[in-house]
Amino acid sequence: MKKLQEGHPVLKVNQLAISVLNKGSIHSITEDITFEIHIGETLAIVGESGSGKSITASAIASLLARPLTVTHGQILFQGTNLLEAPARYVKSLRGQAIGCVFQDYRGSFTPFIKVGHQLVEVIRTHAQVTHAEAKKMAMDWLHRVKLPAERSFRSYPYQLSGGQLQRIALAAALMLKPALLVADEPITALDVITGRAIMDLMEDLQREVGCAILLISHDLRQVIKRSHRIAVMQNGRLVETGSRDQIRDDPQHPYTQALLRACPRITRKHGPHIQETGMWR
């Protein structure tokens, strides 16, 4: 793995276009997506469902399945264009240098294999360690995501709650200390309190691991609290990218303004801290 100097982006996406290729016909899904993420930074891509944000995340994790194809652009991860790099290299990054957490926590682990075994499997795929060492590491990480390690290790996915599964998914994604975590709607399927706890945990672990996070969400309010920079996506295009303060206080694009209005109002009338009014959805 290349060592990166401070200031260089972990991920740089250049004019990325993704299309559906179907027997000769091309249907464009996203176009001209350009953004970058630096070490320790959280960039959020926000937009309504169908805007192409999850597909962009899939492309970065090189998980696009046919008929979806990248038709143009670059995905530079630590300086290497993943679209042109050998498949073996890209595969070696997955799970090790690029971690993923998805929305569907039920689908993040194979239902009939104990989660402990699945964590060990991931560790041993990427690191030359014995089973005992891998198990110790998995237990350590279960502990770090604040779960009873012994019991969780021996549990099948169906025996765990959504919040617990998402914590283990975070552990699975972060235990090999990736440079980038792609979190695709990680808390959308969870209740508010559990979701908040997961986001707190993710922030803590980010500080610990030092990774960059690409956070995909439809929820601008969460995103304003949790990310450093925000990119707003509409109909497959990034319509506005800026720091969270700028997006919150001075949105330029009408769609961003509409998204902000769709959220519970956030005002700064009463001092520098954020005050929230209104109901949660």
Binding site: R94, C100, F102, T125
Partner: peptide, 24 residues
């Protein structure tokens, strides 16, 4: 299934996914 996608995202080898996760 989603869990196969998740296993792929974690870099598990394709033959292993087939033999351990899908075949079962």
């Amino acid at each position: 299934q989603e869990y196969v996608r998740a296993a792929r995202a974690r870099g598990i080898a394709e033959w292993r996914i087939l033999a351990k996760h899908a075949l079962r």
